[in-house]
């Protein structure tokens, strides 16, 4: 059969695949997951960029029938699309935790997630523990972190400190983490990161009706939030998934109807129809996971939880 090439970029690897012309998004996505040995597939998606806008490959539609860049090979990024409510309870496999760790670390370093200088230093110390193992002053000589990107540029510029001084600060924390295995260090990183206000939120600029108030809409694991344009930290308004009856769009307009019929219906405009489609897609996916968490675990999840527990105990013994 005729094929086309795709390049899939994960947080730490690049892979090339030959795909059959008739393949749906799901065929490619499943192949990537199998190649990675990833079973917690529901958090992830294949992202591409078209005309400067980020979009996710639809699983149920043929790959070549989607509005993807016509290049050879076609490039996709394999990324977390949805985030858990609690990393320590929901991320079971080590590979899942590792991919989340790498993605969240990048978001913090790229300043997509704001993090205070104190917390960035603590996070950096866990990243160093994950990479280098236990601190050994005989081996980890001054300058050993010189090649690592550990702190956001904003933090580095904020203080008059030399690279050496930052290294000392991070190393002081790093030395405290002795005995923590790589997977534990990464999980500790995520446990701190998940409490940051901007963690796991997808922001979209929106306008409200005639007065053209510029706002931001945020979609995350818990619900939909509305922010002032200059404050991404604390929403002015929040709709938890369990308090929403219906979400609908027509062209650029999007409507959120609360469950409480007396409560005000929230209407706004996004920049493009395409953005509304993406917002609804994210709402459906997040709501689906929200419901799944509140149901009894499937047999597959129960097995994975048992396996993860065994694996952890075995590792602890080894360590």
């Amino acid at each position: 059969p005729k094929t086309f090439k795709v390049k899939v970029i994960t947080m730490d690897a690049e892979m090339e695949f030959s795909c059959e012309m008739k393949w749906k998004g799901k065929d490619l996505f499943d192949l990537v997951c199998r190649t990675l040995g990833l079973r917690e597939t529901w958090f992830f998606g294949l992202q591409y960029t078209i005309k400067g806008v980020r979009a996710w490959l639809k699983l149920e539609k043929k790959v070549l029938e989607q509005e993807i860049p016509k290049e050879d090979p076609i490039k996709f990024c394999f990324l977390a699309k949805f985030y858990p409510e609690k990393v320590e309870e929901e991320l079971l496999q080590e590979i899942t935790q590792h991919l989340f760790f790498l993605q969240v670390k990048k978001q913090i370093l790229d300043e997509e997630i704001y993090c205070s200088p104190e917390v960035t230093v603590l996070l950096a110390s866990y990243a160093v523990q994950a990479k280098y193992g236990d601190y050994d002053p005989n081996f980890h000589k001054p300058g050993f972190l010189a090649q690592d990107e550990l702190l956001p540029q904003r933090v580095l510029k904020q203080y008059q400190m030399t690279v050496h001084m930052w290294e000392e600060k991070i190393t002081a924390w790093y030395a405290e983490h002795r005995g923590i295995a790589r997977d534990e260090a990464e999980m500790n990183y995520l446990k701190i990161a998940q409490d940051l206000a901007m963690y796991g939120v997808n922001y979209f600029p929106i306008e409200q009706n005639k007065n053209h108030t510029d706002l931001l809409l945020g979609v995350d694991a818990k619900g939909i939030h509305v922010y002032s344009i200059n404050n991404r930290f604390s929403p002015n308004k929040s709709f938890e998934w369990s308090a929403i009856r219906n979400i609908s769009y027509s062209e650029k307009e999007l409507t959120i109807k609360p469950l409480d019929k007396k409560a005000e219906v929230f209407k706004f405009f996004s920049s493009q129809l395409k953005v509304n489609k993406l917002i609804l897609q994210l709402c459906i996916g997040n709501h689906d996971l929200f419901m799944k968490r509140r149901r009894v675990d499937s047999i597959e999840i129960q097995q994975m939880k048992a396996q993860a527990k065994e694996e952890k105990a075995r590792k602890k013994m080894e360590h």
Partner: peptide, 22 residues
């Protein structure tokens, strides 16, 4: 519970989604 009426319209009922999964 997800309905696309035309290419420019879409609707998702969270209530129906919840009922169908119970």
């Amino acid at each position: 519970y997800f309905a696309r009426k035309a290419n420019h319209k879409g609707s998702y009922s969270l209530v129906d989604a919840l009922k169908s999964k119970v």
